[in-house]
Design a protein around this nucleic acid. Structure first.
Lengths: 220, 220
DNA sequence: TAAAGGATAGTGGTCTGACCACTTTAGAAT
DNA sequence: ATTCTAAAGTGGTCAGACCACTATCCTTTA
């Protein structure tokens, strides 16, 4: 910790020092870190400076603080940085199309993933969906798509998908129409048979109907 | 800004409020934000709370502060947060796999997008790459992949890809080996011919070689 | 003795006011 | 009109004081 020079941003040095401390103490996820007051004393800075560094790390999802208890090494897997970034970046209306495109990328990938995995594509949940699609039950669009993305097993992809869903133009919360049910049924069947290519085709058809998009449009 | 409830983490609310302010004022990259003291007064909180929020955003690279001048909206594209994150996360068990999988999802989507677009797949840049691949030039892996993701035209996807790239196990910064060049050449050719399916296959082969992954592994 | 209860210390969350170092600006002296 | 200087404004930091909450220990009670 060689911060002899006044580097104009002490709290950045603190962030670095904290990493060193965590490393030295061999702290593992869930472990408790020294209290703010102790850290301030040990690093010879004010408590507020320590806090600025800690709050930064908290927003990054690297630590977790519980009032009255202390500060703990967090489980990074939550990927909450994506959320923060998104709230700042996604307010650009012009990027709505890229949001839709990206969401579609993840849905396609999930369908493909399941189609190519003998275990996943034979899960009973798909039969269950087929049954519901035959009947007169109301099925919300996102029920099926969410199940697909969840089952595919990629947690980060799921997280991103959830995020994008919020900003999407596609009315996910509505129920499927009759002709949609038919297409969804075909999608499921091909997926269960392992025909990823056909499943993707039905998926594309489905979205075309929902959004009423022009086929020839430049789409990626 | 309906934070009437004392949500136990005011500084998180402030982060949200700051976004609102930025939005309302239509601030663009490089614009100056209100001073810390003004913000504290306007949001009815102490200056230290404002600072905790601002420092967090600074570590994320969303704002930039200059002593004596003020706080400014930063250019997100610098991605400086990733450096800090990576030093903390580095080797994380199965979280890394989902990062790799997700990155691959976006690369595949980009390849497919370009293959299916007559304009994009005939761009001169691909011929240029083919030429370089024939010669003895050193070609860094990410040069090609980045170009592909960029050209695909989905800015959000590109942003996510940039983020994931930094966490990846794949040595993006290294140069391609000879056998890799051959595969990359095939990939490009099929892409330029519009055979997205074959292009994807070559892409998969390529990554298998680079990572040395077992073929049979459960992958999505 | 064992369970229930309450006082206490420790922790994060916040505010205030005070400096410091630096930059910009406006006004005074030339 | 130019130059120089003082003042105002800004981020950077610190110290001390509360508050709200949690865990712990110890007394009280059944």
């Amino acid at each position: 910790m060689e911060n002899s020079r006044p580097s104009s941003k002490r709290f950045l040095d603190i962030v670095s020092d904290l990493r060193t401390i965590i490393k030295e103490e061999g702290a593992v996820i869930g472990d408790k870190l020294p209290s703010e007051r102790v850290l301030a004393d040990r690093l010879q800075v004010g408590r507020s400076t320590i806090r600025e560094a800690l709050r930064s790390l908290e927003l990054l999802g690297l630590i977790e603080t519980r009032r009255g208890e202390g500060t703990f090494l967090a489980d990074y897997k939550k990927h909450q940085l994506v959320e923060i970034l998104s709230t700042f970046i996604m307010q650009n209306p012009q990027s709505l199309k890229s949001v839709d495109d990206t969401r579609r990328i993840h849905e396609k990938a999930a369908i493909e993933c399941i189609s190519n995995d003998p275990e996943l594509r034979t899960l009973p949940v798909w039969e269950s969906f087929l049954g519901k699609l035959k009947g007169i039950d109301l099925i919300i669009r996102e029920e099926l798509l969410q199940e697909i993305v969840v089952v595919s097993g990629n947690r980060l992809s799921l997280k991103i998908w959830f995020l994008l869903k919020q900003y999407s133009r596609v009315p996910y919360h509505e129920a499927m129409a009759e002709d949609e049910k038919e297409i969804a049924t075909n999608l499921l069947k091909e997926m269960m048979n392992g025909n990823s290519h056909l499943a993707i085709m039905w998926y594309t058809d489905w979205l075309d109907i929902v959004i009423g998009e022009r086929r020839g449009e430049h789409e990626c």
